[in-house]
């Protein structure tokens, strides 16, 4: 067992409101307070988590039009996915021979699993979180054609809009941003109405809708 790693975030380090999830509990920090929170990490080391938090918030920045990856807890989502079956290639066909130079129409043919792709790429981004945002954008432009960046971008969108049980989309911030109500059991009375007008029911998460015990895939052993 490796030493337990935490992502420690202080409210003073960011502007606006930060919302983070500690397991299934949401914690809020506002810029004015002196508090900090410690989020247990399943895969990343703290230094890696800080880089991923910084990079995903350049891919999907928060701004005056709404929150972004930092506020939605995307790094927490990615950490759990990497520690879970997806990060370990549990369901991918991984028999040899591999061919790193295969035509793109055949999909990813490499040997490295997502855990390794992240860990390798993050080594080259040491200190990324300490750069100013212009330098961060420059750095990301240099790697935007890499497999790592395409995973990071995809995982950022997943972490913004997944059900909150997966660690991202905290407080359903992502869903509120785009007017998605989550898993709404019935639209029967509305589906053929509201033509041309935004119909925006209040979002509810899966556990709120079903009141059941839902087991997310990243918790599979």
């Amino acid at each position: 067992m490796r030493r337990r790693e935490f992502l420690t975030l202080s409210a003073a380090s960011v502007g606006g409101v930060l919302v983070y999830t500690l397991d299934r509990q949401v914690s809020r920090l506002s810029a004015g307070s002196a508090k900090s929170i410690r989020i247990p990490l399943r895969f990343f080391f703290q230094a890696e988590a800080l880089i991923v938090a910084a990079a995903t918030s350049r891919i999907f920045p928060g701004d005056e039009t709404g929150p972004g990856a930092r506020e939605a807890g995307v790094v927490v989502y990615i950490d759990r996915q990497l520690a879970g079956p997806w990060g370990r290639d549990r369901y991918r066909y991984t028999q040899e021979p591999f061919d790193e130079h295969a035509p793109s129409e055949l999909g990813y043919q490499g040997k490295a699993m997502p855990q390794q792709i992240y860990r390798e790429a993050l080594k080259d981004l040491t200190g990324f979180d300490l750069l100013d945002t212009t330098a961060q954008d420059e750095k990301l432009k240099q790697i935007e054609d890499t497999l790592f960046f395409s995973l990071l971008r995809r995982n950022t969108i997943e972490g913004m809009f997944c059900d909150p049980m997966h660690g991202g989309n905290i407080d359903m911030l992502g869903w509120q941003l785009i007017g998605f109500p989550g898993p709404r059991m019935s639209n029967y009375d509305d589906v053929d109405k509201h033509f041309g007008e935004a119909f925006r029911p209040k979002p509810a998460s899966l556990s709120q809708v079903t009141r059941g015990n839902v087991r997310p895939s990243e918790d599979e052993v």
Binding site: W86, R92, E158, D163, M165, P183, L206, T210, V214
Partner: peptide
């Protein structure tokens, strides 16, 4: 009843053939 989760079903393909086997 508990399957309305886009990530696990539509993205991670929980209902599909396990390609690690075949």
């Amino acid at each position: 009843a508990n399957s309305m989760d886009e990530l696990d079903y539509a993205v991670r393909l929980r209902m599909m053939q396990d390609t690690s086997l075949e």
